[in-house]
Design a protein around this nucleic acid. Structure first.
Lengths: 233, 233
DNA sequence: TTATTATTGTCTCATATCGTAACAATAGAA
DNA sequence: TTCTATTGTTACGATATGAGACAATAATAA
C-alpha cells in the first residue's frame, strides 16, 4: 500500500479533528490507534493543492464517519516548533508496512489547524485510515496519552466548545432529531463538566424559543412522561 | 534589494496581523500601502523553518511597530482556494523593483493565520516593509478596499474582538497605563460600535474589581475632575 | 378502583443584575 | 458667590437567575 506522494498535498500543513459524540451520559471523542505502535492520535489529514481547507476537513470527516453533514468549527492553529518529531512520524509510517522515501514530506515540520465536530453518536459508521488499525470512541475525561500535542489540542477544543455552547446554541448537534429536556441537559452537563439546575435549565431553554415541543415519550417507567423536543428550523 | 529565498521560510503558510489602536475616539488598524500599485494590505509575514508561529507574528509586529510586548490573539486561519491570486502577488513584487524568479515561492497558494493585536496608539513608531512605501492608521469603520480577502479578515478579527471583549477584559490594552473611566468607555463603544450607558458602565467596571483608582486628572475644564484608573496587577 | 412512586412541568419567592433616572460633588468660569 | 458641565453614587423598577414548592401524570401496587 503506497504512501501518498509529495505532490498530492500541500506540504507543512495538516488539520486535526476533535470529533465529539455523546452516549450513555458521557462526552466522547474519536481516536485512531496506529498499527503496531498502539499510539493514539486525533483523526486528521492534509489539504489537496486545489481544495479549500474546510472542504479537506469535511472530506476527512466523511472518510472516517460516513457523515457528509456535521456541525464543524475551526478553533485554533497549532504552530510551535516542538510539534516537530520526525522520529515519531517515521515509526508510525514504518509500522504501517510502507516504504518511507528519503526526505519524505510527511516527516517535515507541520502546522495543524484544529477543527471540532459535533455529531450524533448513533449515525456514524467508523472506518480507520491507512495508518491505523482502529478508530474508537474515548471518554473525554478519561483520555489516554496521545501523540504530539494532541492532548493539548483536545483541551483547546473543549475549552472553545464550552465558550461557544450558549452563544451558538450547539448542544443539540450531539443528539438525535428528537430528544427529551433531560437528555439535552445531560449533554450540557457533560460539556460543561458540572451539574445544572433542572428547573432553571428548562426555563432557560424554553425562553429561548428555539425548541419545538412534540408528542410525549412513554418509556414504560411509572412516572409522568416527558415531552420530546426538536430544534426549530 | 533581493527578495527572500524559498529556503528562508515555510512555504504556503503566512500570517496576517490586524493591529488595533485607539485615538481621537476612533478604533483604527494598521495598513500597508504597496509600491506603485497603491494597493492596501494587512501587515503580515512568513514563518521561519525553526520558528514558533507566534514568535513569527511577534517578530513581524516588532518590525512594523517597534513594540516587543503587545496583546496578541489568534482568531482564525484562512484557507480557501480563492485566496490564490498569483497575478496580484506578482504585480506587487514587480512594483517593488525586484526581479521575480520563475516559480517564485511567494506566488504559490498561501494559507494565512490571522492574529489581532491591541496596543497603545501613542507607543508605536511605524516602519514599512520592503514591499511597501507606507504603513498608516485607518479607521475601522471607514476602511478602503484591501487586497485578497483582507477585508474579510478584518471583519473576522473585529467580530472575535467583540466576543472576547468582556470575557477577557482586554479593552485597557488600547489605552496608556492610566486613563479615565470616560476614555475606557469610549474604547468599549468604539469596539462594540454602540453607545453604552455611562452609569451602568462605571458600575460594571468597578464591580469587577480589576481597576485601581489613582489621583484625579485636572484638565482645566470647569467641572468635576475625573479619577485616573489603571488595571490591577 | 385507589393509593403509591418517581419524574416532569410550572410557579413562587428571594437574590442578583441591569436600564434608567435622579442627585450630590466639584473644578473652573462668570 | 453663583453658574455650568461633568463625574461619582444612589434609588427604583424591570428582568434574569438560584432554590425550592407544588401540581400533573404514567405505571405499579394494593
Amino acid at each position: 500500500m503506497p504512501l501518498p506522494d509529495r505532490s498530492q498535498y500541500i506540504p507543512h500543513l495538516a488539520f486535526d479533528s476533535v470529533v465529539f459524540g455523546f452516549s450513555k451520559g458521557k462526552l466522547k471523542i474519536l481516536l485512531m490507534e496506529y498499527h503496531a505502535t498502539g499510539w493514539l492520535a486525533l483523526p486528521g489529514g492534509f489539504v489537496k493543492p486545489d481544495e479549500d481547507l474546510e472542504t479537506a476537513v469535511k472530506r476527512g470527516l466523511h472518510e472516517r464517519t460516513g457523515l457528509k453533514e456535521v456541525y464543524l468549527e475551526q478553533f485554533h492553529t497549532f504552530g510551535t516548533v516542538d510539534r516537530f518529531q520526525p522520529d515519531v512520524m517515521k515509526t508510525i509510517l514504518l509500522a504501517s508496512g510502507a516504504e518511507v522515501p528519503e526526505n519524505y514530506w510527511m516527516l517535515d515540520r507541520f502546522f495543524s489547524v484544529g477543527y471540532y465536530a459535533l455529531l450524533d453518536h448513533e449515525k456514524v459508521s467508523l472506518t480507520p485510515d491507512i495508518l491505523s488499525d482502529s478508530i474508537t470512541w474515548y471518554e473525554v475525561d478519561k483520555l489516554p496519552s496521545l501523540i504530539f500535542d494532541h492532548n493539548i489540542i483536545v483541551q483547546k477544543a473543549l475549552q472553545t466548545l464550552r465558550e461557544n455552547l450558549d452563544r451558538k446554541l450547539i448542544g443539540g448537534n450531539l443528539l438525535p432529531e428528537r430528544f427529551t429536556m433531560n437528555e439535552l441537559q445531560a449533554v450540557y452537563e457533560a460539556i460543561l463538566g458540572e451539574k445544572l439546575r433542572r428547573t432553571s435549565f428548562q426555563r432557560k431553554m424554553l425562553s429561548l424559543e428555539i425548541l419545538e415541543r412534540h408528542e410525549k415519550l412513554f418509556t414504560g417507567k411509572s412516572h409522568k412522561a416527558p415531552y420530546l423536543y426538536s430544534f426549530k428550523l
